[in-house]
Every structure is written in C-alpha cells, then in structure tokens.
Simulated scan of single mutants.
Amino acid sequence: MSADNVLHVGDSDFDSVVLKSDLPVLVDFWAAWCGPCRAIAPVIDELASDYAGRVKIAKMNVDENPITPGRYGIRAIPTLIIFKGGKVMDQITGAVGKGAIEAVLNRVLS
C-alpha cells in the first residue's frame, strides 16, 4: 500500500525516471519480507505528499530488481538514496525517523 505520488521503479526504467529527473529523487530500496522496510513505508508515503513538486519519491523492490541495487552497493535494506542531477547526494541505511530523512532532503534542496 503506497501513496498515489510514490513512483515504483525497476531496473529497466531507473535511469530514465531517477537519473534523468529534473527534480531530486529519493529512492527507497526495500523488500516485501523486510520488517524495517514495512515500518518506514508510511513515512515514505507522507514524505511523497509533503515534498510533492519538489522531490520525487520512488520505491525499488530489491528482490525483483537486482541490477540497480548492485550498482549502488546496497547491502542492507531499507536503504534510501537521494539523487540529484543523476548523482548520489546522500544515503541513509536503516529505518530512521521522518525528521532524519527530512533533514537530508532539506539539505539537498538548499
């Protein structure tokens, strides 16, 4: 269950949706079996609403899309990576609170 403004990306469309985006993109690398991933899902949905028009929020299921997580060295989930202009701006690993994610997003936006 995810918010209407959360994008779901895969290996096939990652470059076009994330790396070529005009807006910064937060990508949540997750898996269905991951408890901490499910725990932060409502936070990700809230951020998608809070930052609509300023940041794209995307989710990538690591079990269904192994290439991209491998490319970015994802070893633990959830991992959140913030991309801007096709480059990695910051990364958060583990289930953290909304405030910690907002602090990183606000830094990237400033």
Rank of each mutant, 00 (worst) to 15 (best):
D90Y: 02
D13A: 06
V104Y: 00
K59R: 11
S49F: 00
I77C: 01
T93M: 06
I67R: 11
K56I: 04
C34N: 08
G10E: 15
N106T: 10
G73K: 03
L19Q: 07
E64R: 11
G70P: 02
I40F: 02
K84V: 06
D13Y: 12
K87R: 12
R107V: 08
T79M: 04
G97C: 08
P69H: 00
N65I: 03
K98C: 06
I82E: 05
V17N: 04
N106H: 07
K84C: 08
I44C: 02
D63R: 03
G94A: 03
T79N: 04
D28E: 07
Q91K: 14
G53E: 12
K87G: 05
R75P: 02
P36H: 05
E102S: 11
S110G: 15
P66E: 09
S16E: 15
G86V: 10
V17R: 12
R75W: 03
D45R: 04
D4A: 13
L105T: 03
P69L: 01
V62N: 04
Y72A: 04
V18G: 07
L109Y: 05
I67V: 13
S2M: 14
I74L: 06
G99S: 13
P24T: 03
L7D: 13
N106S: 11
A100W: 03
I57Y: 06
C37N: 09
L109E: 02
R71M: 09
K98V: 08
L105K: 02
M60L: 15
K56W: 00
S49Q: 14
T93P: 05
P36K: 06
V108K: 03
I67D: 12
K87E: 15
R71K: 12
D15A: 15
N106R: 13
A3E: 12
